[in-house]
């Protein structure tokens, strides 16, 4: 391994560590399975509330001619997206040696960049 590569890895590692501590991802009780816990993960349970069908199994209120049963379930799509998005943003860089490259949204030919 070239020295410069090792250096950039150490740098990436240190940055990832900083990011982890900033975001409250606890690596303290990491067992043999490498279990890590962030309280933000609890948000992932929220969309499961959609499974309580008695809440929305009714025709009224009708909106644009659509019964409540249908349009209310469509509303859960953004709820699910927001929950996952928040968890993503709060646990960014939780991976080991996260890259120190830019976080821009990647372009179509990103594979060629490497």
């Amino acid at each position: 391994m070239r020295a410069s590569e090792a250096g950039s890895w150490r740098k990436a590692e240190a940055q990832a560590d900083r990011r982890r501590s900033n975001r409250g991802v606890m690596a303290a009780h990491e067992g043999r399975s490498g279990f890590r816990w962030s309280p933000w993960n609890l948000l992932l349970l929220v969309p499961l509330l959609m499974l309580v069908t008695p809440w929305f199994n009714s025709t009224d209120p009708v909106v644009f001619g659509m019964p409540f049963f249908y349009w209310s379930q469509f509303l859960w799509v953004p709820v699910g997206v927001v929950c996952v998005l928040v968890v993503y943003l709060r646990t960014k860089g939780d991976g080991e040696y996260a890259p120190d490259v830019d976080d821009r949204v990647d372009d179509l030919d990103e594979g060629a960049r490497r």
Binding site: W9, S33, G95, E96, A98
Partner: peptide, 17 residues
């Protein structure tokens, strides 16, 4: 026997693992 280790489950791109 378990061939995997705890940190394997968090390795990200560019990791030397």
């Amino acid at each position: 026997a378990d061939a995997t280790q705890g940190p394997d489950y968090h390795a990200d791109e560019h990791s030397k693992r």
